[in-house]
Design a binder for these strands. Structure first.
Lengths: 356, 356
DNA sequence: TTGTATGCGTTATCAC
DNA sequence: GTGATAACGCATACAA
């Protein structure tokens, strides 16, 4: 095969030098605009693309920091695995990641702030996070931004924080899917809604999608209960709900706080008689799906979200370019027959390997 | 940060040279076994990993050939997009792809053979294919193998051909999912089965999964019709099926040849009254899902399959290592509410980007 | 602003 | 089998 066209070829073809060509492709490269245009045009004609691997070779290692709140193990472990996987794939480009887990609870905000400070001082080139967006956190993000360090949010979001971009599940669609599933399972029945933090970024969007699809399908929402991610409260509400609406045919639990509600359903002898759609995939819930108590759950692909965020952060750092403000990942329906694909350890987002 | 340990460091630490270190990491490198062991041990201790990007720099471009049968546009376009996407991501490692479409029909076998011959003579480093595995094709694969050119199958498979590995949808699970969906939609009803080539690699596995799940759930299969991927035959069978079993409550169409069956359902006034689960996603089917005639379809992720195959082929060519013989991709449930995520053009397997 | 020289980490080549 | 050295393709410090 004819050798691939390289920077020397373009330099020769344009009667310039390789530094000029290099600068022409660097968005912040100091070069005469006309010369740049000319070089880019010739490069285009000869189908030249700078080899990023070669370019990275002589540059310093890129460090991307990650701050993750350690609430649900099944969730943040997937997030971390996603980051690690993406980082491994980029290792040859001299990229590293520095993952910090924040235990929720007392002092959470301060510990979080400390990590942000460390990243800001310590020469981090970008930060990916999934945290509580308290005023203090927003402040920290603002400071990073001022220091020229791009931030990205994963799973949830805080657009007003000044973060560069966000990676999320397609929340509205996820809500719609839950409504459609309940509609199919109950035959346009009457359902109950158990939410997490009703006003949170994630829940408002999920519920918006759910309500719209429910309205279109004639699915009647008997009542909504906002358990505020509190298990005790969720159990109380579930008790009350089934007392008030003993003939409810379906339930959608939009948060990961589903165990208490499901337990009430089981103990009241409603298992299998009321259609249940839940969120996420974690061991306790998997049991209920196998047992038939829960008919379906919506998987948010935290692994894929984190991997995509890492990849896009690397792209931004190296190219100073961003296509989107919000990247979304496809929500998936998990039922009994495909559950096993979501419970084993995985290597690749959305794919499994198995020996035959 | 402290500079990353490189080949010079290991050479110094082991009292050898960079040539020796390089050979120690090359499976077919000529080097004294003891010396290799020693070097690898030290490298391990110092956490040294050769930088593959740097390594590829001075090596020749890798060419991976793709031979795809051009039957269903929505399907092979996704396959090609997957290959192209994976190839782009590896472009910096000096990888190219050479995609050839084979129009089905007269002379198909010869044209296919011609491409294989060209790849064999033309210095291809690996071949990925989705074709009809006729004796002639198997022979061609054998010849490539003898020439030291690894082959991989995508979507379908022919293990006896001597192909190195295969990437497929998780077929048995896909069949099981179809059965579970029908069971939920009909309430353990009685269903009809319309298959493609019943004895083909893909269909046997899908049907195996379907029958097992159906048996476990008490879903009764009234009859099976093997339409042999022939639209006319499919329409005939559908007519006959509903005459023989007018009270059938559900239908599973395991091949992409679903249009004729669906048309019979629509024209006989059964739309919305009989539960329909189909396969794949393509424009005509999408219409039926939107209209409510088809309740769900199982997406095979051809994009992801092709991308994974390309990636694994690159890995094998550059490392002479293979983890699996069969890699599987996760089948996904597509219903009306998430259909839009599977019909627009996509950039990444399993993820969408959208502006907010 | 422009051009030159050097380094990045590895493999291929070739002489030993 | 072993070691020196020339690529590989690019970015950048530095001199101009």
């Amino acid at each position: 095969m004819d050798r691939k066209v390289n920077i020397y070829d373009i330099a020769r073809l344009t009667g310039t030098t390789i530094s000029a060509v290099s600068r022409a492709f660097d968005p912040k490269g100091k070069i005469d605009p006309d010369k740049r245009a000319m070089i880019l045009e010739v490069a285009e004609r000869y189908n030249y693309r700078p080899n990023r691997a070669a370019g990275r070779l002589s540059r310093k290692t890129i460090r991307i920091g990650c701050v993750m709140i350690a609430n649900i193990p099944a969730y943040y472990n997937e997030l971390i695995a996603g980051v690690k996987s993406a980082c491994d794939k980029l290792a040859d480009f001299k990229v590293e990641c520095d993952v910090r887990l924040i235990e929720p609870g007392k002092g959470e905000e301060e510990r979080c702030a400390a990590v942000f400070r460390e990243f800001r001082k310590g020469g981090c080139d970008g930060v990916i996070m999934n945290i509580q967006y308290t005023p203090a956190a927003l402040d920290a993000i603002g400071r990073l931004r001022k220091a020229g360090i791009p931030c990205a949010t994963v799973t949830s979001d805080a657009p007003e924080s000044g973060r560069l971009f966000s990676v999320q599940n397609d929340l509205a669609t996820a809500g719609g899917m839950a409504a459609e599933l309940l509609s199919v399972m109950t035959g346009r029945g009457r359902v109950l809604l158990f939410t997490g933090q009703k006003d949170s970024y994630v829940q408002t969007r999920i519920l918006g999608g759910f309500r719209q699809e429910a309205a279109e399908r004639g699915l009647e929402v008997l009542a909504e209960y906002d358990a505020k991610d509190n298990p005790t409260l969720a159990a109380e509400y579930a008790d009350r709900a089934f007392r008030c609406f003993p003939d409810a045919e379906g339930v959608y639990i939009s948060s990961a706080n589903s165990a208490p509600v499901i337990e009430v359903i089981r103990k009241s002898g409603r298992a299998g008689r009321v259609a249940v759609v839940a969120s996420d995939v974690f061991p306790e819930l998997s049991e209920e799906i196998r047992a038939g108590t829960v008919g379906a759950t919506i998987y948010q692909d935290p692994f894929g979200q984190a991997a995509l965020a890492f990849e896009k952060m690397y792209d931004y750092i190296t190219q100073n370019r961003l296509e989107e403000t919000v990247y979304t990942v496809v929500p998936r329906i998990v039922i009994k027959s495909n559950l096993h694909l979501y419970t084993s350890n995985r290597e690749q987002p959305g794919s499994h390997t198995e020996e035959r």
